[in-house]
Simulated scan of single mutants.
Amino acid sequence: MNIFIPLIAGVLIGYLLRRKGRKVDADLPMSAALLLLIFFMGVEAGKVRIDALWLLSSSVVFAALTIAGSVGIALIVGGRG
């Protein structure tokens, strides 16, 4: 689905309502849409099958290498004292 069509339609409607001086309270519809978006993103994320042990070990290794690289660069650039 093309997301630009509703986006452009919303901008045009907002522009037309702004010119007429009407105040539209869009907080409730935006909150409802955001909650639905988060819910459906969770549903899609729940469908994904992953190997949790491999993901955990690779994340730990990546974090350790990132920390070691940061400390190494800090020692090279800044020196020890």
Rank of each mutant, 00 (worst) to 15 (best):
M1F: 04
N2E: 10
I3F: 11
I3A: 10
I3T: 09
F4R: 12
I5A: 11
P6R: 01
P6C: 04
I8P: 00
A9D: 04
A9I: 11
A9C: 06
G10C: 03
G10L: 04
V11I: 15
V11A: 09
V11N: 00
L12K: 07
I13V: 15
I13Q: 02
G14P: 00
G14V: 03
G14W: 01
G14A: 02
Y15E: 06
L16N: 05
L16M: 12
L17A: 08
R18G: 14
R19P: 00
R19N: 10
R19T: 09
K20D: 07
K20I: 13
K20W: 07
G21H: 03
G21N: 05
R22V: 14
R22Q: 10
K23Y: 11
K23E: 13
V24C: 01
V24A: 10
D25C: 00
D25L: 04
A26Y: 04
P29T: 02
M30L: 14
S31L: 14
A32V: 14
A32R: 05
A32H: 02
A33W: 08
A33L: 15
L34G: 11
L35Y: 13
L36S: 10
L37S: 13
I38L: 15
I38S: 05
F39I: 12
F39G: 01
F40P: 00
F40S: 03
F40W: 12
F40Y: 13
M41H: 05
M41D: 06
V43S: 02
E44C: 01
E44A: 12
E44W: 02
G46I: 05
K47R: 12
K47P: 00
V48I: 15
V48Y: 11
R49T: 14
R49I: 13
R49E: 15
I50E: 15
I50F: 14
D51I: 08
A52V: 15
A52E: 14
A52M: 14
A52F: 15
L55T: 14
L55I: 13
L55E: 13
L56E: 04
L56D: 03
S57E: 10
S58A: 12
S58I: 13
V60Y: 07
V61F: 09
F62S: 12
F62K: 11
F62R: 11
A63P: 00
A64M: 10
L65F: 04
T66D: 08
T66V: 03
I67S: 01
A68R: 04
G69N: 08
S70H: 12
G72V: 02
G72Q: 06
L75Y: 07
L75W: 05
I76M: 11
I76N: 06
G78H: 02
G79R: 07
G79C: 09
R80I: 14
G81T: 12
